[in-house]
Design a protein around this nucleic acid. Structure first.
Lengths: 199, 199, 199, 199
DNA sequence: GATGAATGAGACTTCATTCAT
DNA sequence: GATGAATGAAGTCTCATTCAT
């Protein structure tokens, strides 16, 4: 890794952390630069604008989520329900970690940005929409398998079912943030069992 | 209504509209004053700060939601499922209206503010938490009745069930905003039927 | 004059002075505010942007030029040639004053801004174009009278002749600034006599 | 031409083009480097500073003007009036070309820089002053010949007459830029005929 | 000989809030 | 009771230049 790449990576990681912990509008470029210990000119050498950083942060978060949460859960087992529980448990562990460290849940980095910016920054809204399409594919896969194997007894269009699974998850993340209650995320597991018709 | 009260009401309504249409940070006090056609000095006569306005906007939104959405749906019928569908349909109509007028869904005014500010403005987070406790009481009531009447076949702690109903609703509002798809809100109805175990 | 008007007038006069003495790009809003002893927020209360100030400065300069140079010269006499000489002499006196005070000629405030900004700020170019149309009307009037009275022996379209008179004047202002030689402006008088065919 | 010389020539030509098309302050060193496709370090290897580049651009422009406009017009004929007309026509053609390509006249590269920088960058002012002294020599020569040959009937100090010829030319270049009217430059020809007293 | 990285000052502009009338 | 004026901190972003390879 060259020097420049390292600098960019530090800025990216700093933005990722601060935007998630607080919000997009609450964090200034100055703040990011101070935290990352880089010059403001350097920031704009690597990112066209604050929004551009945000866009790249979303990409970065997406890649990490897929790798550390979805793919890891998938690689552990081939049972779709266990896979799903692995995903939720990992999300819970993350928020529980934030809660223990910071006294509050950070919530979903995608939902946070979406609610803050979707109606003002079209580029961000579009990217977040694609993020959720990606997640829906994973959920869709889980449902398909569960349905094929007779574990899930409820018949549905697989994308529609995946969307519903997403509603439950995102809704619980919202509540856990508002209520400072990471435990609520665990309620997603039995809820989704009912949704899929798993005994 | 006295002149002063009227002025305050105009500011409150303007804040309600703009914070919802855009976001808290995107709307400046200047912008509110220009739109409401009041002087900046006047603003600070009626509201201690921008956050104070926001707090009162939340109260106002809550009152309107209870009156226009929940109570109206309750007064129409005594059937719990029909009541629930009335609530969702009213929420859908609202977002559909925004979509037709503005080309996008505004999303839930409480979720929006929560995701934007919960981790920075504790006073706002607390108030939003109470808002959802209020909503949960309504959902709890619906479930209790449905369960008592044998319409809902799934047994659960009523508050837990109400929370799950909220997850589905809030999750769908998030997705409808990100995807500019008000129709997704209607998916809440069948989803919740499954959750409650309604035939 | 109300307080606000006074503040605006101070900013306007400061901008007029600094833009003329230096240039548009060399003078920052900060610099103007410090010189005018007003807060930056106050600046933007009265002017939408730096370009907006510049536009109003041009208007202000134009009004002053018409009043103090053209109208005054016209009111002194009815002889067109004497009127013209009055105009040039007043312009010379102005630049001579700058030269004595500051060691250099400021040049024409309109030509300066035009050369600096015409190809980047269309709004400024357009306004400056109108300024010169205004000046051409005065020169046109002078020529018309001189021609009617038989003082000017050269026949020409009056607007074309006025434009030529403007070329000589503006050209001399350019040279006086580049050469730090206010005296060159006085050469305009005999030059224009030849142009008009005045004995 | 060695590689280094070539690199320097590219930067010089890029600066020449951009400073003329826009202005000195509007063009950043970054912009020049990107357009010239050279590294910023390389820029500062060949030029001490942005002002240094500007100084060399002026020299370069001067050499090109002398060669392509003045010398070429002189070599075509020995008649002083035809020579003069050749100069003006070439200047017109240049501006007409800019107008056709870019929708506007660039104006005189010397006048542009002078009005923008004369009062802030003494080194640039001085160099521009010398440029005009050079031009005056050519005009002086034209007048001398015309006067000697009896073509020009007006008696004058030759340098003074040359200065006046310059005023007309520069003034028309200013007007053509402000008015986006390259045709105005052609008015210089009859104007100067009157000035010289050519039948 | 050339490159990419870094710097710090400063650009224009907006903010929530307070003060004086 | 209400208005317009003023404030200073902070916002995003660009600049000419230098440094370390």
């Amino acid at each position: 890794m060259k020097k420049g790449e390292k600098t960019k990576a530090i800025i990216l990681e700093t933005g990722r952390d601060l935007f998630w912990k607080f919000s997009f509008k609450d964090i200034s470029v100055d703040h990011i630069c101070e935290t990352a210990e880089v010059n403001k000119g350097t920031f704009y050498r690597y990112f066209e604008s604050k929004v551009d950083l945000c866009l790249q942060v979303i990409d970065h978060n997406y890649e990490m989520m897929i790798k550390d949460i979805f793919e890891r859960s998938f690689s552990e087992t081939s049972d779709p329900i266990t896979r799903y529980e692995g995903i939720i448990r990992r999300i819970y562990n993350l928020q529980k970690g934030f809660y223990d460290d910071e006294g509050r849940c950070r919530g979903c980095p995608f939902v946070n940005l979406a609610m803050e910016l979707a109606n003002q920054e079209e580029s961000i809204r579009k990217k977040l929409n694609k993020v959720y399409e990606g997640m829906i594919e994973y959920f869709s896969e889980i449902y398909s398998q569960a349905e094929k194997q007779g574990i899930a007894t409820i018949r549905s269009d697989k994308n529609e079912m995946a969307r519903k699974m997403l509603y439950v998850l995102n809704g619980s993340l919202v509540s856990s943030k508002i209520g400072k209650r990471p435990d609520l995320i665990l309620e997603v597991i039995p809820t989704t069992r009912v949704l899929l018709g798993v005994a």
